[in-house]
Structure formats: C-alpha cells, structure tokens
Design a protein around this nucleic acid. Structure first.
Lengths: 215, 215
DNA sequence: CACGAACCGGAGCACGTGCTCCATTAAACC
DNA sequence: GGTTTAATGGAGCACGTGCTCCGGTTCGTG
C-alpha cells in the first residue's frame, strides 16, 4: 500500500519504493520518540538507509514531515467518518475528540508542526479542509440532537482538541501519561448546551478557516 | 529594582549591573518575538552588549531562560494574590486564568519552556509551589461559594491555563490573535458546578505535583 | 590623578545539522 | 548472462549556534 503521493511520478523502482516506506515508517517512530527536531541522520539510520537516499526521496526535511502529516490526515478523516456513523451524536463528538487527542498525545512532536505545515502546503490544506468538513457535520448533527451547545462550529472542535493534546507531555515526573483525558473531560462538560454562557470572541469566519491563504 | 538573584553574589559593579538588566530586558523582548530558539547573538545585539558579557552573567543559555521565568513567576504570584482579593470568588478564578493565559499568549516561546525548566531548576520549583499554593486557595474559595465544581484542584487550573495558552499562536493567517479567549470561555463553562460530570482520571496527587523530583 | 581590578567585546573554536557529490551496486529488460 | 541505468551510501560542505580567549577599556578608590 502506497503511503503518500499519487501517480504522476515516473514510477519508482522496486527497492526505491520499499526504501521509501522504510523511511516513512522510521520517521514516524523517531519523530514520535524524540520530537520534530530529531535529525535526518537518526531517521536514516533507523530506516537502515543512507542519508542521501532519504534526501533523494524527500528533497527537504519539511517534505518528509509533510508526507507524514498527510498519512495522519487520512487516519483522522477515517476516524471522523467512523464517528459520524455512531448512532448517538454526542458520543460521536466525544469519540472524535478523544481519538484525535490520543493520537496527538502519542506523536509528541507532530501535532505542533501540523498546524504550521498545513498552512504552508497546499495539498495538506486541502486534506485539512476535508477533515474540517467532516467535523462540521459531527457538530451540526450533535447540535440538532441538542447534545452540543449551539454557538460553536467544526473548527472550534479542532482547536479544542489541539489544546488538550498539548497537555500530553507534561514534563513533571510521576504524572500519569493520560492526564490529558481529565482536561478533555472538563472541556467536554463545557461543550454541553446546559453549560453554555456567552462566548466573547465569536467563532472565526468559515472563510478564514477554510481557505487559509498559502503564503 | 534588581530583577533576579538575591544577595550572596559578591556585589556587581555599576556597569555590570546595568548591563545585566539590559540583557534580561532584551531577552524577554526577543524571546517573546522569535520564540525560545532565538540566538544568544540576537539577544546580545538587542541589548547593545557583547556576547561574552551575556555569557559572563548567565553562564548558559538555560540560565538566562531560567532567570526570565523567575521574573514571570513573581508576576504570576502577584496576579494570584490580587485575584484572591476579589470579592467575588468566581471572578477571582476567571481573572486569574485570563491573566495567566494572556501573558503566556504574548510571550510566545516562554510558556512551553516554563514547564521543563521548573522541573530542572530547584529554585523555580520552589517558586512554582508558591504559585500553586495561591491557586489552590483561589480554587477552594470558589468551591466554598459553590461557584466552582468540587472535583478539581489548584494544579488543574494551571494545566487548563497552559492548554488554553497553547492556542495563542495558531499559524493560520487572518485569525484574530485573541481567539484563545473563546476557548478559555468554553473551559470556564466546564468548570462551573452545574456542568460537572464525572472526570475519568482523578486529579494528580498533591505529592506528585508539589514535589516534582529534581533529576 | 593614578593604579589595580573588574569588566568589556569581537574574533575564534567545536559541534551538530541539513543537504550534496560521486564511485559503486543492483534492479530491469533483452 | 550482459548491458543499461536508476538507485545507493558514506565522505564532505556550508552554516548557524552555544560558548570561550584575550587585548583593551572603564569603574572605583586612595
């Protein structure tokens, strides 16, 4: 199963394709362990591949990161679709936030970079819009069922999730690793209709969120 | 007004003391603008001082960062005390979270480093404990007035605040800079007693939180 | 004023990182 | 199997960074 780009490329040789997968797999591992500032040398070593090979496939470290984020976006979209299939709309929202935050919590460095990269990369921006679409459906469905406060939109869920996930690697020794679930709980309580008070800055307009200008 | 360390040092000469203040001020500015990875050369330049001077006063870049965090901790403690003086206990909590998140939002890089550094530095850990104490008082006061849900503690407020602040520099162009207030609002709604549902992972024990082992 | 000591700052060192060159290897097709 | 050519990987380059050395300068006191 190909992991990244689609056809247009002039067809990779067998070993090259295999190495590409090895590199992507190694990068996911290493980034998750040491964060985004892990060196390309480390990644190449983990993949059992020369550094030049890595750079032939991904001309820039950024390109590699972008490719990995692309993979994760596909997983996220799949999760969102699965949550849309839940019979209980609120549980769909809950499961989505939970799943997204959990993955962001495991892949330590990635989540932070995701935001920047999907502004810089048009491909990623498109993928992101698709996820945002699914998220908006989740929100509207829950709102129609009176399970979710009315004054929020899909993008709010994304931002909330990212805030919670940022709590994943608190450096204090002895803290349980899943403490972020506690704060997701508080957030979820704040998302119920009963809890709603007026939110001061309004939701960002759809136009701004859906079409982040590529600089 | 001396900004950092106390007496024990063998008394700084006039120009040396002045330069120290210049360096700290410049570091706060530069870190806030470019984040923590701003170079020492930039900071020295901004302070109008040679690089060697910077390193004579702060033998390590980490020492400089730690000193700055110390300054901010004093400000945080002052804020907490001021909020404790509010007549409305809930407003005290609200103002505290708001103020803390706002400062974290302005000083882009610092907030992230704060967590790591106050684990590594014993001095900072002590300061942190003091702030935590004040925060706990804020929480208990609001809980007694039935303005805050019962199942949270002081440290929860700190973590929630840090989560909200992490939303301060979303890279999407066109987003208003104070969007984090919106999500603090949702969080605050989740902190009211009426909103409370059972939180899954319990609060971290006081022992773990108050005495982070210095490695 | 004059003198010793504290202090200064720019040039330089060591190191890690992203990225490239090129002689060697091995896949693919006849 | 032989030939072509894509693919490989280790040595090396350029650069930025944290940090230091040392000749010159300024502060503080008698």
């Amino acid at each position: 199963m190909a992991v990244g780009e689609s056809a247009t490329a002039p067809a990779l040789r067998a070993d090259a394709a295999r190495n590409r997968e090895l590199i992507v797999a190694a990068a996911i591992e290493v980034f998750a362990e040491r964060g985004l500032e892990a060196s390309t040398a480390d990644i190449a070593a983990r993949a059992g591949v020369g550094e030049a090979t890595l750079f032939r496939r991904f001309p820039t470290k950024d390109d590699l990161v972008t490719a990995i984020i692309g993979v994760q976006f596909e997983e996220s979209a799949a999760l969102a679709e699965s949550c849309l299939a839940d019979e209980d709309p609120w549980q769909g929202v809950e499961r989505f936030l939970y799943g997204m935050a959990e993955r962001a919590a495991v892949d330590h460095g990635i989540a932070g970079a995701t935001k920047e990269k999907c502004v810089a990369s048009p491909t990623l921006a498109g993928e992101r819009r698709r996820i945002l679409d699914l998220t908006s459906q989740l929100v509207r469905r829950a709102q129609k069922a009176d399970a979710l406060r009315d004054d929020i939109a899909g993008q709010d869920l994304m931002f909330v999730m990212s805030a919670v996930a940022s709590l994943a690697d608190l450096p204090f020794p002895g803290l349980r690793a899943d403490l972020w679930k506690r704060y997701l709980g508080i957030f979820l309580d704040g998302l119920r209709p009963e809890a709603a008070t007026r939110l001061r800055p309004g939701a960002p307009s759809r136009k701004v969120i859906e079409n982040p200008e590529v600089e």
